[in-house]
Write a protein that binds this DNA or RNA. Structure first.
Lengths: 124, 124
DNA sequence: CTCATTGTTAACCATTTGGTTAAGTTTAAG
DNA sequence: CTTAAACTTAACCAAATGGTTAACAATGAG
């Protein structure tokens, strides 16, 4: 949990692709082999293999090799961290913080968060 | 909220870039103009302009034009939806669903986990 | 009017991404 | 031993991405 910047980057990049999000969704229903994962997708097995690798590198997928089949399952920890990253900006508290910050800028510019220059009220 | 697949795609793609996540973080501190946003970044203004456009297209940023300056502020609604997408897979409830689903699949393959009804409540 | 400020658009470029097919590897089966 | 199955790796390709500089547009200031 210390240096999560690179991890969070991998996580969000991995989730940026619809195919990979669909794989995550699939795995949420239960573990699956590579061919099982590939089955619904209109693309080749190597393509899916790459996607799985990317999810694995992002820590979103763990692979249990049993003989020649690779059993894949979802690992939710990176999802939790992505959720936490997002929650910084979606909580009620931060909404309040945001409003307050803007108010402070209006009241005494230059005192608060960023060195804003003067602030005009939006026109009606 | 009907066809959120494309929206969620735009949102996650937008958040997949570290520069854009940093912009989101910056805007969470309060609104800012384009040059203010660009100031800390070691890249040209047009590069930032493009990032802002992508965030805007994703609905994560709203632009208020006042004369020649564009005041940008964060819009958290897409973040909430991204959070909700993630939460499908990070709640305790779904962890249970996953484990039980795997058990049920082992016990009676062909039955889908979601067809069963005795699930525990999610934890906060 | 003239000039600076604020920002976008255009044209271009290198790298990354997401896909392909073909070949290789490992394991299970006959 | 031979062959099939389950995947991965390699080599390649087109398109998307993220950046650049130069030119353009619109607004505010002198």
């Amino acid at each position: 949990m210390v240096n999560n910047e690179i991890e969070i980057d991998r996580t969000f990049s991995a989730l940026g692709d619809p195919t990979r999000r669909a794989i995550v969704q699939r795995l949420a229903m239960g573990e699956a082999t590579v061919t099982e994962i590939a089955q619904p997708f209109p693309m080749s097995l190597p393509a899916i293999s790459k996607h799985i690798r990317i999810l694995e590198d992002a820590g979103l997928l763990v692979r249990l090799k049993e003989g020649r089949i690779h059993r894949c399952q979802l690992s939710v920890e990176p999802l939790r961290e992505a959720k936490q990253w997002i929650e910084q900006y979606t909580t009620f508290w931060n909404a309040q913080l945001d409003s307050l910050g803007q108010y402070l800028q209006q009241a005494s510019p230059g005192l608060h968060p960023k060195e804003h220059t003067s602030w005009k009220k939006p026109l009606p």
